[in-house]
Design a binder for these strands. Sequence first.
DNA 1: ATATAATGTAATATATATGTTACATTTATG
DNA 2: CATAAATGTAACATATATATTACATTATAT
Lengths: 72, 72
Amino acid sequence: MKNKIKIARVSMDLTQQQLADKVGVTRQTISLIEKGKYNPSLKLCLQICYTVNKTLDELFWLEREEWRNGKN
Amino acid sequence: MKNKIKIARVSMDLTQQQLADKVGVTRQTISLIEKGKYNPSLKLCLQICYTVNKTLDELFWLEREEWRNGKN
DNA sequence: ATATAATGTAATATATATGTTACATTTATG
DNA sequence: CATAAATGTAACATATATATTACATTATAT
């Protein structure tokens, strides 16, 4: 589950911990999502978007192709 | 968790069951998501997007405001 | 008006996201 | 180099998404 959270996060000058706190989740959860090892809930995706000022498409969109190539 | 799945689905002439099948999920899951009673996973959101030819933002985006007004 | 398909929804079971704790590794900073 | 901060990751616990089964209600068609 690839995504662009890390780029958005560091460009906001946030640490995983800080993002986690703002979003109300654990640092580990952020870490695993950034690493593409988690399949986050829509709710969490939205909260991350709000915190780093991005939209769902900007952070999480994947074309069918890249989708199928990933592990899922 | 409001969304625009139903509109997209019927405009594709799909029943909940058909969408569910295409997406590999249960009809009940689709029903509950449409009704805003579920917090679907990103993976499922993407699969729905692909099936109804919409993007994440088109189907699932919510501004912070509407967000806070919802139950969550 | 009656049958049939589509949808809402509840109860219980299962799978999986997330929390907690803990430690290892990497990256920054003195 | 040394120390601290940031990040990766594992084991187990808990919360919650989704499946399953089943039935009720609403829409559609005959």
